[in-house]
Design a protein around this nucleic acid. Structure first.
Lengths: 149, 149
DNA sequence: TATTTATTGTTGCACAAGCAGATACCACGC
DNA sequence: GCGTGGTATCTGCTTGTGCAACAATAAATA
């Protein structure tokens, strides 16, 4: 029974580490993006996701999944960005329930301005996390995920 | 310059993966803990953190760090839990600005009831994440963090 | 075709979060 | 002792979030 309990505890500890690192990075991104581009982290996430999407458009529900947000929060998030002229809603031709969101020129522009801030803050946050013993192993593991060997 | 750009992109991708896994796990925990114990994830985190603390008491600011929450949010979080009788505030004797929070008997009881739900949900969420190609490597890496070799 | 069932997105409501400002307290220098 | 600066916590206000209920459209079935 010790072995099973250990697995539970190992998972719990892994989750706490994950949550702690996530919280640290998100707080720093939140502050810097807000200061430099008047964007929250989710807002940046939306713009970034759209920019990496073929054709630069996504449906509401995809967006909700990409941001881990509820459908209603996504609606309002898109409202905010649309009001600022950073993206537009486009009615789906083939499925008239669906709505595509697409970056506008100024959306792309703002994203390009914000990206250096985002990247620099991320680098700094990871460096800080590196200094915290509990977080360092996870920070080391991250870059190895998608670039094996 | 390609090398430097690559590092930036690797970090960004690592962060997206981390955020995605975090979001997935947190949503599931939120639902199950709310359903089984009327606790949000942060509320559970507070009770759990207190239970793993020597002497079972922590100061507000420690709690704020442990939950990655602002000071004001921590105040209200502790208010809620105190109103439900799950913990108590104890004035600090040596530093009269400070306030200790300590689990009550019913706080301990609720935590013990919620823990199995938490652990089972965590296991299930990680199993689900394992099925998602982008997340699987991170899920595999987690248990190796604190149990090297 | 008509009727049910499922999917997609939006709105009303209640609640939790952050920021800025206020209060109480400690610590240091004079 | 007395001010000055820094720390710990709480409160008012605004904003973003989730849930439940809803409207509109598509898909399935009879």
């Amino acid at each position: 029974m010790g072995i099973k309990d250990d697995a539970v505890e190992v998972r719990a500890q892994g989750w706490r580490t994950l949550a702690a690192l996530h919280g640290l990075i998100e707080s720093e991104l939140e502050r810097s993006l807000q200061a430099e581009a008047q964007l929250s982290v989710v807002e940046y996430t939306v713009l970034d996701a759209l920019s990496r999407q073929d054709g630069w458009h996504m449906r509401m529900q995809q967006l909700a999944r990409a941001t881990a947000l509820s459908a209603s929060a996504t609606t309002r998030l898109v409202n905010r960005l649309e009001d600022r002229g950073l993206l537009t809603r486009i009615l789906c031709a083939d499925d008239r329930r669906g709505i595509y969101t697409e970056l506008t020129a100024s959306g792309i522009k703002l994203l390009e301005e914000a990206r250096p801030t985002h990247d620099a803050t991320l680098e700094r946050a990871l460096a800080e996390a590196q200094e915290i013993p509990e977080l360092a192993p996870l920070v080391d593991a991250l870059p190895k995920l998608h670039a094996p060997v």
